[in-house]
Amino acid sequence: MLYVVIIFLFFSILLYFLLGGADFGAGIIELFTSTDNKSRTRRTMYKAIGPIWEANHMWLIIAVVIMFVGFPVIYSDMCTYLHIPLLIMLLGITARGTAFSFRNYDAIKDDKMQDLYNYIFVYSSFITPLFLGIVAGSVISRQIDPGATDYLSTYIFSWLNWFSVMVGFFTVALCGFLAAIYLIGEAKEQFDVKRFTKKAVIMNAVAVGFGGLVFIAAEHENVHLAHWIFGNPVSLIAVIAASLSLVLLWYLLSKGNTKVIRILAAFQVTMILVSVSYRHFPNIIMVKGGNNLSLLKDHAPMTTINDLGWGLLLGSLLILPALGYLFYSFQTKTKQE
């Protein structure tokens, strides 16, 4: 049952990255869209994510709940050492979620207020995945130092280091890429398809650039990232699969395909997550001094894990069909219009 819980944890994090990430990305795309085209982007985006908006962000809640029920020591350590980036991420989530809803549910659509909502929305769409990435980078960066005695090395340098920050920017670029690929399929006019394709190219290039910087920063901070990724066959295959699928994605896109490329983009992100986490599984938090926290060791008592596992299995029987139907029906209904 422990593995069931771990699989749920992995999938909720993955789905939050993919679905929530694409939502963030939509805001990032809007941020980097010229003023003339902003409202076009917004319309496409609203159509695409309006109905599924709230549901996409539920995956984070599921992941957090699994963490604090199933892996309380890991959760409380993260919350202690990464208090500040988690806090900033939360502020981002709050600002963003409310700004998105408010701009749609403000009964009077005057420019002044709409501009304010848009402004909050696009900047928090950028900040939130940045800090999400920083948190993700920090847990594997070995910079968390339980032996530290001063404020800076306990609560600041645990996350403010080149590696974590580069992972943060890499995450932002990936979100932008996911969103651009997604929006290509939602765009109604050729003009928008072209625009989103261009955005996808840029985001792709930026992601590759920051990916490279992540490796350099890893060397600089003594994180054995290259060794984790290229030192074992599973991670290596995952990386190769991701690269090949990227080539395939661009080929299909040039042929005008809009649906398969979504799957390929999601596949790439999945492979990146697999290749990074495979080597150090079951360890999830790498700390200075080597007392790493492990999903297989630092979990709640088995009675709790069993109940949690059953809860998640039964819950997913309710959630998954309903969610699937939500996605499916709005895909087909928007097409009919």
Partner: peptide
């Protein structure tokens, strides 16, 4: 934590 995980489901 059990009610929280079920609450996660209900909220979803």
């Amino acid at each position: 934590g059990m009610p929280f995980s079920l609450e996660g489901v209900a909220f979803f």
